[in-house]
Amino acid sequence: MTMAEQALLTIDGLAIDAPRPDGSTVRLVDGVGLAVAPGERVALVGESGSGKSVTARAILGLDPELTVTGSIRFDGRELVGADRKTLAAVRGRDIGMVFQDPLSALDPLMTVGDQIAQPLRARGMRRSAALAAAERTLGELGVADARRRMRSYPHEFSGGMRQRVVLAMALVGEPRLLIADEPTTALDVRVQAQVMQLLTDVAASRGLAVLFITHDVGVVGDLADRTVVMYSGRTVETAPVGDFFRRPAHPYTRGLLAAVPRLDHDDRLVSLPGAPPRPESRPVGCAFADRCAFATAVCRAERPPLRPSATGGEVACHLAPETIGAAS
């Protein structure tokens, strides 16, 4: 499998179980596979409860109370079951991460400059050198007058500026992979567009690989080279971004795209009936079968494996694409 050989990050057969108060467990992630090549920008798309965030957090081992099985390999190193020392070496150095809410990621009592410098200080860099690197990174992220702003505190910054600070913290250690979990969701529309542009520019100029987690299919087109769609804890489709929009293979992907209001047409929105199954009551067959207009007996009885699709990606559907359209 050439993809896996070249990949910077490879996730294979990932399952994540959460403990419940009664001692049993519930399977949040039930078979996720994805790969990110060096310099590639991959969007991981899913709705709430799809398991996209918990998958991203598992890469860095951020939720020790969860049981992770399967494989997460970064640059040849296995991260599932890795000891704290290995994970600590990867965090912040090889892999940077930003989250949705910048304010909760920042210490209100520490200057912005010291916070950005923190990852470098933690590996023993001298304060002056770390601060210089922090200032460079902040400038790279389009913050005018970075030197002066380094002495500010988070509350003096707007939401968009705070997200730049958090990005700077993630990028100051020059990671090879950036994991961004809904980094623009809490921002106003115009600021969101600016941050997305910034992220795209920085990734391109640094040759940085990005795993971008989002529920918003609208922002995918601006950033991603490739899209991975998750549904109910499983990967249901992976596709180059053009095919994701133009030739979506999985019925869920099609439904997702048809449900988004757009500026370029007035068609009535397609509303998928019902809601995703809860993790504790995921059906035996395809998790999407109950909401799928095409579902047949085999869909309810057997779980569809992720297999190559006609469009150069992969799809987990018994029927797609042969039966449900694009017969030409």
Partner: peptide, 18 residues
Amino acid sequence: AAVPDQAELRPAADYTLT
């Protein structure tokens, strides 16, 4: 202008959800 540009990203007719 801040709305992500999707003008060229409509699914082809064969790929809509029928």
